[in-house]
């Protein structure tokens, strides 16, 4: 291999088109969700433990910090789900062209933002 070939791996100089943004956010939200599983199991555990446990989980979300954590967790879940559906659609051959990929990526961002805002409205 020619060791002197030009390489540009300086991320700060690489452009981030919509599809690339959707991709990196999919990764970040996925990593976040692996930690969120612990939160969900915790909530499931308490909510099934007893009527008091269920009430405690519900009451925990009265505080602002808890609301923010729940919203962030739901945002990661919503985003990851929407971007994942795009992957599945592309596997079916939908939106695979360059233009289709761009449009799909923008749609993912728009749909995710709308759903995340709705989730925020629901939490508050």
């Amino acid at each position: 291999m020619n060791k002197n070939r030009p390489v540009n791996l300086d991320i700060s100089t690489i452009k981030l088109p919509a599809a690339a943004l959707v991709s990196i956010l999919h990764r970040i939200s996925g990593v976040v969700l692996f930690a969120v599983v612990a939160l969900l199991l915790c909530m499931l555990d308490a909510s099934l433990e007893s009527e008091q446990g269920f009430a405690d989980v519900a009451a925990a979300f009265d505080s602002i910090p808890a609301k923010l954590i729940l919203w962030a967790a739901l945002a990661a879940l919503i985003y990851h789900l929407v971007a994942g559906v795009r992957h599945l659609l592309m596997d079916l051959g939908i939106g695979e062209t360059l233009e289709g990929g761009r449009r799909g990526a923008v749609m993912v961002l728009v749909v995710a933002v709308v759903l995340i805002l709705l989730a925020g409205v629901w939490i508050w």
Partner: peptide
């Protein structure tokens, strides 16, 4: 998660 995190 394993497949995704492995990729990352």
């Amino acid at each position: 998660a394993w497949i995704g995190l492995w990729s990352v």
